[in-house]
């Protein structure tokens, strides 16, 4: 299957130099977000916020053909130092 990935903020470092806009990746059937991140080269312990078709997703989330994936970092400005993690969505109220 093929998915489209948009990289935001710091994660744009995974884009090839000079490239902008969404990138297409071809994955095996039943692939998860985790599989996609491995293909892209995002480390296992990286602090990444993931959205699939606009909804927040986890690394275990299954992908489907034609999915729109957004990879984001929620860090910003003065917060963007040392790559410290934000809270996980799972720990929320």
């Amino acid at each position: 299957m093929t998915v489209t990935v948009t990289f935001f903020a710091d994660l744009r470092r995974f884009l090839p130099r000079g490239v902008d806009g969404p990138q297409r990746y071809t994955l095996r059937e039943q692939a998860t977000v985790d599989d996609l991140l491995t293909v892209i080269g995002v480390a296992q312990d990286a602090d990444v916020t993931i959205a699939v078709n606009g909804e927040q997703a986890a690394r275990e989330t299954s992908l489907h053909d034609g999915a729109d994936v957004m990879l984001l970092s929620p860090m910003e400005g003065g917060a963007a130092a040392e790559g410290e993690a934000t809270t996980s969505i799972k720990g929320g109220a």
């Binding site: 935001f8 903020a9 710091d10 994660l11 744009r12 470092r13 884009l15 130099r17 916020t49 959205a51 927040q56 957004m70 984001l72 970092s73 929620p74 860090m75 910003e76 400005g77 963007a80 934000t86 969505i89 929320g92």
Partner: peptide, 25 residues
């Protein structure tokens, strides 16, 4: 630059707002 400062270089601050909103923060 690409590896360490790409987002700042391309956008300055404010490129992570969608992530922040998606996380509810």
């Amino acid at each position: 630059m690409d590896e360490k400062h790409r987002a700042f270089h391309e956008f300055g601050t404010g490129a992570a707002m969608q992530g922040k909103s998606l996380e509810g923060g």
